[in-house]
Amino acid sequence: MARPLDHAKRADLLAAVVRYIADHGLAELSLRPLAAELGTSSRMLIHYFTTKEELLVQALATQRPEMETLFADIADAAALRARLWDFWQANTAGAGQTSVRVMLQVLGAACAPRSPYVEYADAAIGTFVAALTEGLRATAVEHPEVVATLLVSGLRGILQDRLVTGDVDRTDRAARRLIEQNVV
């Protein structure tokens, strides 16, 4: 008889997996060292999540903000600029930075042929672009989906720059300029 899932333990494992990936990286991730660090076994991880890829996708899902509602109440360009700047700041420090570090690794891994992360990465990008497109519609910007794509891709690139270089001032100025020039 299969052991029932302990949902609190499962949630704790997902949070710990995100921290582990942020600290150790995704490229060489193996279940045994991960399980040892989490104080469990690879068998238990498979019991809870079926596959390593499913474990990672579920861990990432716990970190993704509710994008569908992030820009839903935007009334004008000034409000959207402020919300994007708040989003930038939330994702460049503390737990937000950990989530971004992991997300960027998954997006990179999704570029590999037959990657198990393609579907997740595509949905994550698509959700962010769609939500921002709706926010941009309130500003009457021309081609809101194109501008949303530019903002999402540009901010993601600047986030990666910041994580690699550690240059807070330059990347903050670049993010602010990207937002101000595209949300008018």
Rank of each mutant, 00 (worst) to 15 (best):
T40D: 07
S41W: 04
S41Y: 06
R43S: 12
R43C: 01
M44Y: 06
M44G: 00
L45K: 04
Y48N: 13
Y48E: 00
F49S: 04
T50A: 13
K52R: 15
E53L: 03
L55G: 07
L56K: 03
V57A: 04
Q58I: 01
Q58C: 06
L60I: 00
L60W: 14
A61P: 01
A61H: 05
A61N: 13
T62G: 14
Q63G: 14
Q63M: 11
R64K: 13
P65V: 04
P65Q: 05
M67G: 13
M67W: 15
A72Y: 02
D73R: 11
D73V: 00
I74F: 01
I74D: 00
A75M: 06
A75Q: 14
D76G: 08
D76Y: 11
A78L: 06
A78D: 03
A79G: 15
L80G: 01
R81W: 06
R81C: 03
R81N: 04
W85A: 10
F87S: 03
F87D: 03
F87Q: 06
W88T: 13
Q89A: 08
A90K: 13
A90Q: 13
N91K: 12
N91D: 12
N91P: 00
T92C: 10
T92K: 03
T92F: 00
T92E: 10
G94M: 09
Q97P: 00
V100A: 10
V100C: 09
R101T: 13
V102Q: 05
Q105E: 15
V106S: 00
V106L: 14
V106K: 04
L107H: 09
G108K: 12
G108V: 00
A109L: 11
A110M: 11
C111F: 11
C111Q: 15
A112K: 06
A112N: 08
A112M: 05
A112S: 13
P113Q: 12
P113G: 06
R114P: 00
R114M: 12
S115E: 12
P116T: 05
Y117P: 03
D122G: 08
A123R: 10
A124I: 01
I125N: 05
I125H: 05
G126H: 11
T127S: 07
V129A: 03
A131W: 02
A131F: 01
L132F: 01
L132D: 03
T133D: 08
E134Y: 08
E134C: 04
E134D: 04
E134F: 08
G135C: 08
L136Y: 12
L136E: 02
A138C: 09
A138E: 05
A140D: 10
A140L: 10
A140C: 05
V141Q: 12
E142L: 11
E145S: 15
E145F: 02
V146P: 00
V146W: 08
A148F: 07
L150Q: 09
L150V: 15
L150H: 13
L151I: 09
V152M: 11
S153E: 00
G154M: 10
R156C: 01
